[in-house]
Simulated assay, not measured.
Amino acid sequence: MESKKGSAKKVSIIIVAIALLILIFSVLSSRFTPSTDQARVQGLTLSLAPMVSGYVTKVNVSLHSEVKAGDTLFIIDRTPYEIAVKQAEINLENVTQSLTAGMSGLKGATAQLNSARVSLERAKKNWERTQRVMAQNEGAFSQVDRDRSESSYLTAVERVKTAQANLDGQKAALGPTDANNPSVKAVLNQLEKANWDLAHTVITAPSDGIIESFNVETGYFASAGRPIATLISNKTIWIQANFTENNLTHLKVNDKASITFDIDAGEVYDAKVVSIAYGVKTQTTSAGNLPTVRNSKGWLLEQQRFPVIIALEDEEIYKKLRQGSQADVVVFTGNSSILNTLAKIKIWFISKISYVR
Rank of each mutant, 00 (worst) to 15 (best):
G108R: 08
I211M: 09
E89L: 14
S62P: 00
V274G: 00
K161Q: 14
T204A: 10
L106V: 07
F243G: 01
Y278A: 13
I353V: 11
A69R: 07
Q97L: 14
K86C: 00
L198G: 03
L251E: 04
I239L: 03
T155R: 11
K124D: 12
V59H: 04
S29F: 00
K124R: 11
L20H: 00
L113N: 08
K320M: 10
L300K: 08
S115L: 14
S53M: 02
T244Q: 09
D77W: 01
V293D: 08
P50F: 04
A241S: 09
I203V: 14
T36N: 14
N242A: 11
T292I: 15
H200D: 02
K10Y: 00
S213G: 08
S62C: 05
I15F: 01
G139I: 01
T177S: 15
E121R: 11
T79I: 15
S115E: 07
Q97G: 05
W299F: 11
L300Q: 08
V41W: 02
A116T: 07
G108K: 09
Q170K: 15
S53W: 03
T72S: 12
G175M: 11
G219W: 05
P291Y: 05
R78G: 02
N289C: 04
T110C: 09
S65K: 03
Q303T: 11
T341R: 10
L321A: 11
L339T: 05
T260H: 03
R117T: 15
I353Q: 11
I310R: 01
A224P: 01
F141P: 02
K297R: 09
R226K: 12
F25K: 12
I83V: 14
E138N: 10
T110F: 02
S336C: 04
Q190M: 12
I259Y: 03
Q164I: 02
E212W: 00
N137P: 01
G298M: 12
A123S: 13
A194G: 06
L44V: 13
S35V: 02
L92R: 09
K256T: 08
G266Q: 08
T79E: 15
N247P: 02
L73D: 04
R122D: 15
I18A: 15
Y355D: 04
E66Q: 10
K125E: 15
Q323Y: 01
S104I: 07
R117P: 00
S275N: 10
S296R: 10
K193R: 13
K272P: 01
T177H: 04
S213H: 05
M51K: 10
A140L: 06
V280Y: 02
G43L: 13
S336H: 10
T218K: 05
D145W: 05
V56E: 00
S12W: 00
T100K: 13
F349V: 15
N195R: 10
L46G: 00
S115Y: 03
V61M: 05
N94V: 11
V253M: 14
V329T: 03
T249C: 07
A39M: 14
T236M: 02
K320G: 11
A140G: 13
K346Q: 12
N289K: 12
Q240P: 00
N254H: 08
Y318E: 07
V160G: 04
S98T: 10
L251V: 07
S115T: 13
T292C: 05
I276F: 03
I76C: 11
D262C: 00
D37C: 06
D264M: 07
